[in-house]
Amino acid sequence: MTVTAPARPTVFQGLPKVFWLLFSGQLVNRFGGVVLPFLVFYLTGRGYAAAQIAAVVSAYGLGGLGGQPLGGYLADRFGRRATLISGLLATATCLILIAAAGSLPWLMAGALAMGLAGDVYRPAASALVAETTPPHLRAKAFGLMHWAVNVGTAAAGAIAGFLLAHGFWLLVVLDVATSVAFAVIVAVGIPRGHDKAAARSARNGYAIAARDRVLMAALIFLLTGLVLYAQAAYALPLALAADGFPASLYGLLITVNGAIVVIFQPLFISWLSRLPRLPVLGVSMTVVGLGLGLTGVATQPWHYVATVVLWSIGEIGMAGFEAALIADLTPERAHGTYQALYGWTTAIARFAGPAVGAVLFQAGMLWWACAATGLLCAVFAVTLMPAVARRERALTQPA
Rank of each mutant, 00 (worst) to 15 (best):
V359H: 00
V214T: 10
V120W: 07
F182M: 10
L62I: 15
H166R: 00
A54N: 04
A49G: 13
A127Y: 10
V180Q: 08
F221N: 07
G291A: 09
S126V: 02
R200F: 02
W344F: 05
L272A: 12
L226F: 09
A101S: 08
R81C: 00
S86K: 05
S201G: 06
P6R: 13
V287H: 00
T330S: 14
R203H: 14
A323T: 08
P6T: 11
P266V: 15
G251M: 03
T337K: 06
T255P: 11
S201Q: 06
L62M: 14
A113I: 03
V151S: 00
L275I: 05
V172G: 00
H146D: 10
L215R: 00
N29W: 03
A177Y: 01
T330M: 12
V57I: 13
S248M: 01
A259Y: 07
V359K: 02
V359T: 12
L267H: 13
A198V: 13
F245P: 00
G167R: 00
L223K: 05
N150C: 05
W20K: 05
Y121L: 09
A177T: 12
G33E: 10
I326A: 04
V149N: 05
A75Q: 13
L22D: 02
A92C: 10
R393A: 15
G374I: 13
G374N: 07
L292C: 02
L249R: 01
Y48R: 12
F221M: 12
W368T: 05
A327C: 06
S284R: 04
R277D: 11
L275D: 06
L375M: 05
L21T: 09
I260A: 03
T133W: 07
I208W: 14
M1F: 08
M108C: 12
S284A: 13
V262M: 11
A124W: 07
M385K: 14
Y338A: 15
L43R: 13
S270C: 02
P279G: 00
A124Q: 09
A155M: 15
G189Y: 09
T337W: 09
F321L: 12
L240C: 12
A347V: 13
V186S: 04
H194W: 15
G102N: 03
P246R: 13
L366T: 07
S86H: 01
L116E: 06
G118E: 12
V35Y: 00
T383S: 14
Y73D: 04
E332W: 14
T383K: 11
G205K: 04
R211N: 02
V180S: 03
R138G: 03
A209S: 02
V356T: 11
P9S: 02
A218H: 14
R211F: 10
G296L: 11
T383D: 11
Y121F: 01
T373Q: 09
S24V: 09
L39F: 09
V129A: 08
Y206A: 04
A298P: 01
A369I: 05
L252R: 14
P16E: 06
G353M: 01
P331E: 03
R192D: 15
